[in-house]
């Protein structure tokens, strides 16, 4: 098992918890999609896994090692990478500087150079814009840069929060193709997606979150066809996704 989350409770400041005793398991080399209504705790789950939020209770184990309470940089070092919803680039730095920051933990200059070359090979569009300031890229390009940046440290588990948010349909296709490519490279991807149909048809396995706990899990295509879940959680989302 790659990731084992048990009874995690987490939230912001002194507000009531968003995650209320959530448990779920992630296996190696699969792709997962987390769906659920707004406020279900999807983003909070990812932030808690990567250490931006500290769980108030519960345990998180990654490859058998306990990681709850570690700093984000320590968790990254263990091989869990995160792409937040707002893409979290450094707007005043160039594409190249952003990629180099992606490899901030790599102190070996030669390795850094190699990784950078590989990223440019996979994303020729970034090579063309290597000296452009990230803040001036289009939304789709920014998302590509944010995804490409994670390749700098070759994580075992990649957590992506709503990569399709605010992007044109054609660009969304590219984003999912990229995620498929990452899967082929041996990464396990844990995706949070508002567009449930899109996300579930891409993933192997689906998690349905509601009110801060896991309500259902199963093979992704099964979830799409389960009439009860469709009615309860996919309702309008599914309809929108199929338009």
């Amino acid at each position: 098992m790659l990731l084992d989350i048990q009874n995690v409770e987490a939230g912001y400041g002194s507000a009531p918890p968003v995650l209320r005793g959530l448990s779920l398991q992630v296996e190696d080399n699969r792709s997962y999609c987390v769906i659920g209504p707004n406020g279900a705790g999807k983003s909070t789950l990812l932030k808690t896994i990567v250490g931006i939020l500290r769980p108030r209770r519960g345990t998180i184990r990654f490859q058998g090692e306990s990681i709850e309470g570690l700093r984000p940089d320590e968790i990254l070092q263990k091989g869990i990478c995160f792409v937040p919803q707002d893409r979290s680039l450094f707007p005043e730095m160039t594409v190249q500087e952003n990629l180099r920051m992606g490899g901030f933990l790599i102190r070996d200059r030669r390795l850094l150079r190699e990784r950078l070359d590989r990223v440019y090979e996979l994303f020729p569009i970034l090579r063309d814009r290597t000296n452009q300031v990230a803040g001036t890229l289009s939304g789709g390009q920014q998302q590509m840069l944010a995804l490409a940046r994670t390749l700098m440290i070759e994580p075992k588990l990649l957590c992506v929060d709503e990569p399709s948010l605010g992007l044109a349909p054609g660009i969304v296709d590219q984003v999912f193709e990229t995620l498929t490519e990452f899967r082929k490279q041996g990464m396990t991807v844990l995706l949070v997606e508002q567009n449930a149909v899109r996300g579930l048809s891409w993933a192997d396995w689906g998690f349905v979150l509601d009110l801060g706990a896991l309500r259902f899990e199963g093979p992704a295509d099964g979830i799409l066809e389960n009439p009860q879940i469709r009615e309860l959680y996919l309702g309008r989302l599914a309809a929108r996704g199929e338009e």
């Binding site: 990567v50 940089d73 990254l76 070092q77 995160f82 979290s88 680039l89 450094f90």
Partner: peptide
């Protein structure tokens, strides 16, 4: 947040 994400 981005700084934390890349391991600063």
């Amino acid at each position: 947040v981005a700084a934390q994400v890349v391991g600063v």
